[in-house]
Design a protein around this nucleic acid. Structure first.
Lengths: 368, 368
DNA sequence: GCTATTTGGTAAGGTGACCTAACTAGAACG
DNA sequence: CGTTCTAGTTAGGTCACCTTACCAAATAGC
């Protein structure tokens, strides 16, 4: 057995708490930090010195303050603290955000998709987006890259997992391998729905939380006890494989109903949305039944505090009320069912959060 | 914001690691502990001194050792380290184990059930069992009581939750209240299936793990990332409320098929078992379909490494193979499906583990 | 303008939990 | 009987935190 806790974890949690506090408040003095976090003034001074030496924070000029006594030194995010890159790879192409360590997006980069199934074009687009991002870098080192993939991802190997009938077969590439010669920063890879859940959870703040994505595919992102649930094989949330009304899977039944996917590589979201817009009662009934099955299953298994519906179909306004009613009829103590608020940007927001968290953690543990 | 990590957490994790190591090895010297845990010899000596002063450990006489040099002082669990009480309350009555802090069961106490729905008799039996346990206490203080209830339990208030159609309506009591005047030790309460999962997880060792109970009711215990999932309202694992093949719940459909429960307070387990023993094809088909629906749902939602089937019906040998086949047909990367090994004793084992964990943690944080 | 007050920050010294290195204690081997 | 091996202690150091006391600088009010 190894040493359980090195003493340095104390310093690291202190540094992290103070860094987050500075970023959250934009500009603070050490005295304010001490008051806000409960650390003593000497401890705050030491920590801020470490963070400043490491380039993560920087002192600003004196600040107009309405207060009475001596004006303190204000600190803010260092100009060369570095940046992270969040990349989204899906059927709509490749999109990336370059963000500073406060999470502020500085540059956007996009490439259109290749043809369906064209893996080569996708790889080229991914490399082109990252090359473009590296060509106009924000100040400081690139500290992490997080890639959102519209396919399941293995939790430890970070390999993309091939499932039969995936709506995104061209996305069966390993972003870490594709980008290995372009970036030296660590490349994190996760599923787009997981990352969307991460982003939406940040806004909702619930300790147990499920995000149901309904679009070209069906997906679920789960947060329990402040941790993302990825599953033993990276297949947590693959709710297309939920048992349906018959002996088969939910996805197969949706496909048989003319929705969703089974062996069709992709699903016509615009057609589904049009049917909903036109108040097609059959389309509504099928979708409500499917979403209710998903929400009911998640509720019975993990009993989350909040379930958010996301994705182009999931956020359609006509869905929410009937799903709520159906779930309430099924479950004795149903979760709050709401709409996601971040829309199609949720995966990029989540990837940014993932990259940031990793980048800041790594930068702090690497401090003297 | 409060202090993130007090320095004492280091000491507490050290003490805990060493205590667990001593208990796991029965008898050890400090030198062996240092080698096994990676702590330095002075640190081990200090920690062992704290644990010995607190009564949790005690030095034994010299030990026959095949080794060459000086014989060290061996340490073992202190004779008056105290004990914990695990209590199970269900339709079969009230059962309790008094165990020492190594988890060794010292005494057993049992009371038969009252009539179905007879809450008064159940409360009397619970008090009688605890009184009996307190009358023949093992040495040392009673440090914790854990109660396994055959009903859902709220994760924070520890109140038992009333669900319509519960097979155990008389069990709608608060053990903490019932025992308040009998014991001063903390009374922990949890659901029997959760505790069974805790116990079985201990034997299996998987990081993500689901325990499916099939007996008088349907239940699920979930372990993800080394943590028990209780749900926002204590209703995680209430898989009777899973969507069934039709618009209703799985439990309602089982009831309609002559199995399970809906508004009948209890289910005739012996009749179901007899049907399975007699190779009744209809009974087998209905049960396999239901269990497959449960395992498939859990797999699609959280993707556990292992799923154990437990409970009198769940452990029936004819179920395993067809369920495995059906799950494999449904899921792209199914969990290992096995039988639980602890049988009806699983909840008591789990309650013991819960009580032990709490007791040792509390004893160590209370140390000088 | 001068002083009191208020606020920011540093210096000095202490504590707790860990470490390494060097020692003493005691048993067995040859 | 000395050598060698193992157990455990002592001494001294480091690190991350703390409190207390002080100095520094700015405004408020006279």
């Amino acid at each position: 057995m190894e040493r359980a806790l090195p003493q340095s974890v104390l310093r690291e949690t202190t540094d992290r708490a103070l860094f987050d506090e500075v970023v959250g408040r934009e500009r603070v003095t050490r005295a304010e930090l001490a008051a806000a976090t409960g650390f003593s003034k000497p401890t705050v001074s030491e920590s801020v010195r470490r963070l400043t030496d490491g380039g993560l924070l920087a002192a600003t000029g004196p600040q107009e303050t309405g207060r009475r006594g001596r004006v303190g030194t204000f600190y803010e995010l260092g100009a060369t603290a570095g940046w992270v890159l969040a990349v989204e790879v899906d059927q709509s192409g490749v999109h990336a955000w370059a963000a500073d360590l406060a999470g502020r997006v500085r540059h956007r980069h996009d490439r259109p998709p290749g043809g369906a199934g064209d893996t080569r074009a996708l790889v080229d687009a991914l490399r082109a987006v990252v090359t473009s991002a590296l060509a106009t870098p924000p100040a400081g080192p690139l500290r992490a890259v997080a890639v959102s993939m519209a396919n399941p991802v293995h939790p430890t190997t970070h390999e993309v997992i091939a499932l039969s009938g995936t709506p995104f077969p061209e996305g069966l590439v390993s972003p870490a391998d594709v980008l290995a010669d372009l970036v030296t920063a660590p490349v994190l890879v996760d599923n787009d729905v997981n990352l969307a859940a991460l982003a939406e959870q940040g806004s909702v703040g619930a300790a147990s939380f499920a995000y149901v994505y309904v679009g070209a595919g069906l997906g679920l992102g789960l947060y329990l006890g402040d941790r993302l649930v990825r599953g033993a094989h990276g297949l947590a949330g693959e709710i297309g494989y939920l048992p349906g009304a018959g002996p088969g899977t939910l996805a197969a039944e949706l496909a048989a109903d003319g929705f969703g996917r089974s062996d069709a590589p992709s699903n016509d979201v615009t057609a589904v949305l049009k049917a909903l817009d036109d108040d097609d009662p059959r389309a509504l009934a099928v979708l409500v039944a499917a979403v209710t099955r998903v929400v009911g299953s998640v509720t019975a298994v993990v009993d989350p505090e909040v379930v958010l519906l996301g994705g182009p179909v999931g956020t359609h306004p006509t869905l929410l009320a009937p799903v709520r009613d159906a779930v309430a009829a099924l479950s004795p103590s149903p979760a709050r069912v709401e709409h996601g608020t971040l829309g199609v940007l949720a995966p990029l927001h989540g990837a940014t959060r993932l990259a940031l968290d990793h980048a800041v953690r790594a930068a702090i543990t690497g401090l003297p």
